[in-house]
Amino acid sequence: MICQSVRTLQKWRVTGYGPAFYKLGHSVRYLQSEVIAWATERRKAHTSQ
């Protein structure tokens, strides 16, 4: 859905930028609905926004 590398997602988690996530042991998981909501909030109609 967001087409980012694992490393980018790691950086986003550290900075608090990316979608909400769950940490289960050593695994990181995202709810599809939360990723979609996060991406929708950042949707732009044109480049000047």
Score class of each variant (00 low, 15 high):
V6Y: 15
A37I: 05
E41L: 14
Q32N: 10
K11D: 10
W12D: 00
M1C: 09
A37F: 04
G25W: 03
I2R: 04
Q49I: 06
Q49L: 07
M1R: 07
T40I: 05
E41C: 08
V6K: 15
L31C: 07
R13K: 10
V35Y: 01
Q4E: 14
H26D: 08
E41Q: 13
H26V: 05
Q32E: 15
R29K: 06
Y30I: 02
R42Q: 08
S27Y: 11
L9I: 05
Y22I: 14
L9N: 02
M1Q: 04
Y30C: 00
E41K: 10
Y30P: 00
H26A: 11
R7V: 12
H46Y: 07
H26Y: 02
I36H: 06
H26R: 09
E41G: 08
T8K: 15
G16E: 02
H26S: 12
L24I: 13
G25E: 06
L31Q: 09
F21T: 01
Q10V: 09
Q49Y: 05
Q10I: 10
Q49F: 02
E34F: 03
S5D: 13
Q32T: 10
W12H: 03
Y30E: 02
P19I: 01
P19R: 00
R29G: 01
V14T: 10
T40A: 09
G18H: 00
C3R: 15
Y17C: 11
G18A: 02
